[in-house]
Computed example of a mutant assay.
Amino acid sequence: MRNYRQYCGLAAGLDVVGERWTLLVVRELLLGPRRYGELLADLPGMGTNLLAERLKSLCRMGVITKDDQVYELTERGRGLADAVHALTRWGLSFLGDPSAEAVCRPHWGLFGLQAMADGSRVPGLDESYEFRIDDEVFHLRVAGGEARAERGPADRPAMVMTTDARTFVRLGSGSLTAAEAAAAGLLSVCGDPKASARCAKVLGLRREAA
């Protein structure tokens, strides 16, 4: 294991998760426990030997644990959530239009929602939004100044959005507006028209992007 040999919290953290692919493994596990084959399938481009090496290292450092062939984050590993979400928000500004070979998984949209949502942006709001992304469904619940994104349909959603994974990420990055996506037949939204604006505000999207 490489070591920066610097007595600094950032350097110590990078000693653990700074290797290529490591934070993407953490991203997958922040969404819940996964089996080895599931991780390999959702980390396209990562070879099986490298994945095995990264998992072994993270287990050794106490970031993840393995039980009955299922990997999940430890309490220490879950402590990475805020840092990984912040890096996700920061990285969105670097996303342009995806290349033809770029892979995009629907559940990465759920991760993006978790990273972007902030219920305090709309004080007093109490409603839910449902997102149907390719073959997956998840929702965002906003109440009490907090926002929580989870898998599954919403209970009485104020808005339902249907689109594909690439379009959803492009909406989040601001490289495509909702109006442009709808005009191209890539997006449909139903429910309270004002709910879409409130949802966009919770996600911190610019008015023109929404």
Results as ranks from 00 to 15, higher is better:
165 A>G: 11
28 E>K: 11
113 L>Q: 02
166 R>H: 01
9 G>S: 06
137 V>T: 12
71 Y>Q: 14
130 E>V: 03
46 M>S: 06
143 A>K: 10
60 R>F: 15
208 E>G: 12
169 V>P: 00
65 T>G: 12
147 A>R: 00
167 T>Q: 09
104 C>D: 12
128 S>E: 07
13 G>N: 09
163 T>S: 15
18 G>C: 05
114 Q>D: 06
84 V>Q: 08
15 D>G: 04
147 A>N: 02
165 A>M: 13
110 L>I: 12
61 M>Q: 13
49 N>Q: 05
25 V>I: 02
9 G>C: 07
110 L>E: 08
71 Y>W: 09
60 R>A: 12
33 P>L: 10
120 S>V: 15
135 D>P: 09
87 L>S: 05
145 G>M: 12
56 K>M: 13
80 L>C: 03
43 L>S: 05
161 M>H: 04
184 A>K: 03
151 R>F: 15
128 S>P: 03
49 N>Y: 04
79 G>H: 10
186 L>G: 09
18 G>D: 08
102 A>K: 11
125 L>S: 00
55 L>E: 01
105 R>L: 10
198 R>G: 11
69 Q>S: 10
171 L>Y: 12
58 L>T: 00
136 E>V: 09
116 M>H: 06
114 Q>M: 13
34 R>G: 04
35 R>I: 12
48 T>N: 03
159 M>W: 13
160 V>N: 02
43 L>Y: 03
195 A>K: 02
149 A>M: 02
61 M>L: 08
37 G>C: 12
92 L>I: 10
183 A>Y: 05
146 E>F: 07
148 R>P: 00
85 H>L: 09
14 L>N: 04
13 G>M: 08
174 G>Q: 07
72 E>A: 08
3 N>T: 05
32 G>V: 01
27 R>E: 15
18 G>V: 08
105 R>Q: 12
154 A>M: 11
59 C>N: 12
182 A>S: 10
115 A>Y: 01
43 L>N: 05
7 Y>V: 13
146 E>I: 14
67 D>L: 09
14 L>F: 04
118 D>W: 01
193 P>D: 11
184 A>W: 02
92 L>V: 06
188 S>N: 08
5 R>P: 03
175 S>K: 00
197 A>V: 04
101 E>F: 06
208 E>T: 07
191 G>F: 13
115 A>S: 15
39 L>G: 06
174 G>N: 04
204 G>E: 12
81 A>H: 01
80 L>I: 11
86 A>E: 15
182 A>P: 14
192 D>F: 08
128 S>Q: 13
196 S>R: 13
156 R>V: 07
130 E>K: 03
209 A>V: 03
193 P>G: 02
151 R>W: 10
23 L>S: 11
103 V>F: 12
1 M>E: 07
144 G>K: 01
103 V>I: 15
51 L>T: 01
22 T>R: 00
163 T>Y: 13
166 R>W: 01
129 Y>Q: 07
65 T>A: 14
73 L>V: 11
176 L>F: 07
183 A>N: 00
83 A>K: 01
180 E>W: 00
132 R>L: 13
115 A>R: 01
202 V>Q: 05
40 L>S: 13
